[in-house]
C-alpha cells in the first residue's frame, strides 16, 4: 500500500509540471474572398529578439512552394523537419482555419510574436501578413490581415 502511494505521488509530481506549463490555444485564421486557389500559410513564432523560435502550423503540403512563404523560408531554409506533425492542407479563399495546439505557457507575456506568411497561386506573395504579440490580454482580439487574411485571433 505504501509503495503504491509512493508511486502515485511520484507519477503525479512528474506529470503535474507538464500539465501546468502548457495550455490549449486555438489559432483562428479567416481568409478573404481573394478569388484565387487555396492559400499556403506558415504560422510561426519569433522570440523577444525577433529571431525565429519555431513553427506552429503549415497550411500546404508541397514543399516546393514553401519558398513563397519567404520570411519563414529564410528563417528555416525550408527545412521540413520544422513542420513535421504540424502540417495540413492549404486553405481556400473565404474559409476559416482553426487549429488547437498545446502551447507552452512560457510563450505568453514574454515578448514572443506569432507571424503568418501567406501565398496563393499566381498572386503576390505576402510575407509577415500577420504579426501579433502573444499576450494573455491579446487573446480573443481579432487582428486584420493585409492581403489574403481577413483576420486572425488566438483564444485560450
Amino acid at each position: 500500500m505504501k509503495t503504491i502511494l509512493a508511486a502515485l505521488a511520484l507519477t503525479t509530481a512528474l506529470t503535474f509540471p507538464g500539465i501546468a506549463m502548457a495550455r490549449p490555444v486555438t489559432l483562428t485564421t479567416t481568409l478573404k474572398d481573394y478569388g484565387g486557389n487555396g492559400a499556403y500559410l506558415a504560422i510561426y513564432v519569433t522570440d523577444p529578439k525577433g529571431a525565429y523560435a519555431g513553427s506552429l502550423w503549415m497550411a500546404g503540403t508541397k514543399s516546393k512552394y514553401y519558398e513563397h512563404l519567404s520570411d519563414w523560408y529564410r528563417a528555416t531554409g525550408g527545412n521540413t523537419a520544422e513542420i513535421n506533425g504540424i502540417t495540413g492542407a492549404s486553405v481556400g479563399a473565404g474559409r476559416r482555419l482553426e487549429i488547437t495546439l498545446d502551447l507552452a505557457d512560457a510563450l505568453f507575456d514574454a515578448g514572443y510574436t506569432v507571424h503568418i506568411d501567406a501565398a496563393a497561386e499566381d498572386m503576390r506573395d505576402s510575407p509577415n501578413e500577420i504579426a501579433v504579440p502573444l499576450t494573455a490580454e491579446g487573446a480573443g482580439q481579432s487582428v486584420p490581415g493585409r492581403r489574403y487574411i481577413a483576420n486572425f485571433s488566438y483564444g485560450m
Binding site: G18, I19, M21, A22, R23, V45, A53, G54, S55, L56, W57, M58, T61, S63, T80, A81, E82, I83, N84, G85, I86, T87, G88, L97, E98, I99, T100, L101, D102, L103, A104, D105, A106, L107
Partner: peptide, 23 residues
C-alpha cells in the same frame, strides 16, 4: 513534411506536451 497526427509536433520548445494538434 509529415502531416499532422502522423507524428508528434517538433520538439522546438513551443509545444507543451507533444499532443497532436486539432485542425
Amino acid at each position: 513534411p509529415a502531416p499532422a497526427g502522423s507524428v508528434a509536433p517538433p520538439d522546438n520548445g513551443l509545444f507543451g506536451t507533444g499532443a497532436a494538434p486539432k485542425v
